[in-house]
């Protein structure tokens, strides 16, 4: 019973972590799948959101909300910088844009470490959610549970926006045929900027909201970037459920896996990628020698 108890909290942690990654990876996928920009500064924007939220919130609810708002604003601003940086390269394909964002990530990372120093910045969470909840004889950290609820709501809201609103339809149209959307009268640069800003906002939101889970620190940006990319590579392209499951799996490895054996967690992560990618070649239907598709492509 004790062993279960000992692992239950990390397991719940894992769900929260996974959901955080899901929201974070969504921003990356949004920008890549629709905007065609591989945003290597994604982790930096997440860290920015975390730092901003941590520096504003001081334990009261009002400051927490303000912190979140500032995080989102910061992320959006970062996204705008991204848009400005990548727009001149829009006609030249993925790699030049990715390299640009690489440069921006390095610059941004340096700025963050200069401003905030090299230490971890734990965020002060409002007292009412800073405790534990007793549930069926087990204890869970309150914030994690609250986060799970919020993130799940976000995910649902996101799919509703994407699926049911005009803006969402426009997004999906851009993914399919950008030239056509341009022909419809939506200037490509406006769409591009809007996408970058939205992705930045999402990253900032994830960073701010998730700061108690993945705190802002010198390694945050790299770590979040790597994990987001792992989630995307693992998730079945084009499938939200696949990405969701992948995110939860990665989250569990990073929490439960680390609590069981912290030395083996990186190997576990790699092993999971190996299994997922090996399995994919056999599952591809209709392709004689299955090729793992770039994320976002229509499944075979």
């Amino acid at each position: 019973m004790d062993a279960l108890n000992a692992h239950l909290v990390p397991a719940v942690d894992g769900v929260a972590y996974g959901l955080l990654l899901f929201v974070a990876a969504a921003g990356l996928t949004l920008l890549f799948g629709i905007g065609g920009v591989l945003n290597i500064a994604h982790g930096t924007l997440f860290a920015l959101g975390g730092y901003l939220a941590a520096s504003v919130s001081d334990g009261s609810w009002s400051s927490a909300v303000l912190g979140l708002a500032v995080a989102v604003a910061g992320g959006t601003a970062g996204g705008a910088v991204l848009a400005a940086g990548t727009l001149p390269l829009a006609g030249r394909g993925h790699l030049p844009q990715a390299l640009r964002t690489f440069g921006l990530a390095l610059v941004g990372g340096d700025i963050l470490s200069t401003v905030y120093g090299g230490d971890e910045h734990p965020v002060k969470v409002p007292g009412s959610v800073n405790g534990m909840v007793h549930f069926f004889g087990h204890v869970y950290p309150t914030y994690r549970l609250m986060f799970i609820a919020v993130a799940a709501a976000l995910a649902v809201a996101g799919s509703v926006v994407l699926g049911r609103t005009r803006a969402g339809a426009l997004l999906r149209a851009t993914a399919d045929d950008r030239a056509m959307v341009g022909a419809m009268g939506y200037a490509p640069w406006r769409v591009h900027t809007a996408l970058c800003a939205a992705a930045g906002a999402l990253a900032g939101l994830a960073g701010g909201l998730g700061a108690p889970i993945i705190g802002p620190g010198p390694d945050t940006a790299d770590k979040v970037l790597m994990l987001s990319m792992v989630v995307i590579v693992l998730g079945r392209p084009g499938s939200v459920l696949g990405a969701f499951l992948a995110a939860i799996a990665v989250g569990e490895i990073e929490t439960l896996g680390v609590s069981i054996s912290s030395d083996w967690a990186p190997f576990l992560l790699f092993g999971m990628m190996a299994v997922a990618l090996a399995g994919r070649t056999f599952r591809s239907s209709g392709v004689a020698d299955g090729v793992a598709a770039a994320p976002g492509e229509a499944p075979a």
Partner: peptide, 27 residues
């Protein structure tokens, strides 16, 4: 690592190799 990485192409490969690099540093 190539057994895993070379199953992907293009941007997925970029992401996979980035992840492998970071994992190596972590280990």
């Amino acid at each position: 690592t190539g057994l895993v990485a070379t199953r992907t192409r293009g941007v997925a490969f970029l992401m996979t190799t980035l992840a492998i690099g970071e994992l190596a540093v972590a280990v």
